[in-house]
């Protein structure tokens, strides 16, 4: 992450404060998704394992609604060429990734806090495991969402393509994260979850390397 990428991140952050392209979509989706779950449950008591799964369902679909904006907003405003004229592909990807990382962390902290306030069954027994899962999971989610956003930005049917392309790429990550979250809810020790944590870390490294290699081809016509 160099100084140029950080400048691009600052430009995106400033632009987001002015336009609220992604933040409005994310806030609305989080509120609607959690409300729908609450209404559909009614007075029923849901199991602890179900709350862990539902948490990542909300996170997955919230990411779908907000994270694609990183590149789609540039394409819609016609500023993609401007970026190509001022920065190298790796700078653009690093800047956009940093922006999505911050957005994912803020979004998921809000979701996790709302979630624990709304659902009595969502009680974390192994907080360290949850924290590491949350950290690695968010990094993976941000990397995958950023490269998928870059791929779909030039397509005509962006809205349909994003979830379609995201599903197979994010499914292994989400399955591992659900498993690890359940472990942290039922108090499984950190050592017993090391294999799954290593898998998530590997996913992050592979996706990051593949994204940097692929982005050069995605970015140029």
């Amino acid at each position: 992450m160099n100084i140029k990428a950080f400048a691009l991140f600052k430009k995106d952050f400033h632009s987001e404060l002015r336009t609220r392209y992604a933040v409005n979509a994310l806030i609305m989706f989080i509120i609607v998704a959690i409300s729908v779950i609450l209404f559909s449950i009614g007075n029923e008591k849901i199991s602890q394992s179900l709350t862990g799964g539902l948490l990542w369902v909300v996170i997955f679909f919230s990411a779908m609604s907000g994270l694609s904006r990183a590149f789609v907003s540039e394409e819609e405003r016609g500023t993609t060429m401007t970026l190509q004229l001022i920065a190298s592909p790796s700078t653009v990807f690093s800047g956009k990734l940093l922006f999505n990382l911050i957005l994912v962390f803020v979004m998921n902290i809000v979701i996790a806090l709302l979630y624990s306030a709304m659902f009595d069954a969502f009680v974390i027994k192994n907080f360290l495991l949850f924290l590491v899962t949350f950290l690695l999971g968010n990094i993976g989610l941000a990397i995958s969402s950023t490269i998928i956003a870059a791929i779909i930005a030039k397509a005509g049917s962006k809205g349909t393509l994003y979830p379609v392309l995201s599903f197979p790429i994010l499914l292994p990550l989400i399955l591992l994260l659900v498993h690890l979250t359940l472990n942290s809810l039922d108090g499984t020790s950190f050592d017993q979850s090391l294999f799954e944590l290593a898998m998530v870390a590997c996913y992050d490294v592979i996706m990051l390397s593949a994204s940097y290699m692929l982005f050069d081809f995605v970015w140029k016509d």
Binding site: K4, A7, L8, S15, R18, R77, G78, T79, M81, A87
Partner: peptide, 18 residues
């Protein structure tokens, strides 16, 4: 296209930094 949501000065400043 330049960034409509920024002023000319802000646009040019960000371009320099990037």
């Amino acid at each position: 296209m330049l960034y409509d949501e920024f002023s000319a000065w802000e646009n040019l400043n960000y371009f320099s930094k990037i």
